[in-house]
């Protein structure tokens, strides 16, 4: 049997909203350590890796490792029926072909239960190498979302150039071109508003902005986003999930022929 209870069910709903544009169905790997998921988008340009550690749940029980094939599209629809302060319990009974989502209102006066049929999915796993990135940019996730949305107006690609002083996002297309430059914050009251850059080597990388905009669907999970970059290496775009885990999106760059 698998059962995991999350006092703030809305966190789980935000995780699903963060994933479901990039991947419509995925296999969840459940073990005693927690829940993990790795999936590529249908064009195999981007990869997402999710970790939710067991100690982040209010209660967690996993008697044996399980691989659960789940339609994220359907799960998202079910989770929309959850109240914003509801407690969420996810359960898979032994020998069952369904996942049960139970939602309980804070005053314990309303209790809803939905079942979703599990799917048999072919999943390929990729080995993600440990990388010492040349540059890590930390910035407010709302700012990153706004920049990606604005860049998409100008063109299909965005070039991210990072130096020790700042990071520049630039795009050009048929309508024209533009760029936004952020300097490293020197003095901020709140850490979550800061832009910080850890740099060993300057980098300039070009990415399809459409994917960055899909990654930004996970921005409501976290005030800050980390962008880790090295030349000729996929970008790692990370949103923390509270203190229980993270969503890491990897995006292959566009490379000059």
């Amino acid at each position: 049997m698998f059962e995991a209870r999350l006092a703030q069910g809305s966190i789980f709903a935000k995780v699903i909203e963060g994933l479901r544009e990039l991947v419509t169905e995925a296999t969840w790997e459940c073990s005693g350590n927690g829940i993990t998921l790795q999936a590529m988008d249908s064009s195999h340009v981007a990869l997402v890796s999710l970790v939710l550690r067991s100690d982040g749940f209010e209660t967690y029980r996993c008697d044996r490792n399980m691989s659960l094939g789940i339609s994220l599209t359907s799960m998202s629809k079910v989770l929309k029926m959850m109240g914003k302060d509801d407690t969420l319990t996810i359960r898979v009974n032994d020998d069952s072909d369904a996942i049960v989502l139970s939602m309980e209102s804070q005053n314990q006066e309303e209790f809803a239960e939905y079942e979703l049929r599990l799917m048999d999915l072919d999943s390929e796993h990729l080995g993600i190498p440990d990388t010492d990135y040349s540059c890590v940019v930390k910035m407010p996730s709302t700012k990153f979302s706004r920049i990606c949305r604005d860049m998409a107006i100008l063109g299909d690609s965005v070039t991210i150039c990072s130096t020790k002083d700042g990071v520049k996002f630039g795009a050009k297309g048929d309508v024209g071109q533009g760029s936004i430059r952020l300097n490293q914050s020197t003095n901020v009251d709140k850490e979550e508003d800061a832009v910080s850059i850890e740099l060993r080597e300057a980098v300039a990388l070009t990415f399809a902005v459409r994917y960055l905009n899909m990654f930004c669907k996970a921005a409501p999970l976290s005030n800050q986003v980390n962008l880790s970059m090295s030349e000729d290496t996929p970008l790692m775009c990370e949103f923390k999930v509270g203190d229980m885990g993270h969503i890491r999106f990897y995006l292959a760059p566009k490379i000059e022929d």
Partner: peptide, 14 residues
Amino acid sequence: TMTQKSITFFFGKK
């Protein structure tokens, strides 16, 4: 011209 690489070009299949 720039070419979009696949993620499998960088990360090997397990």
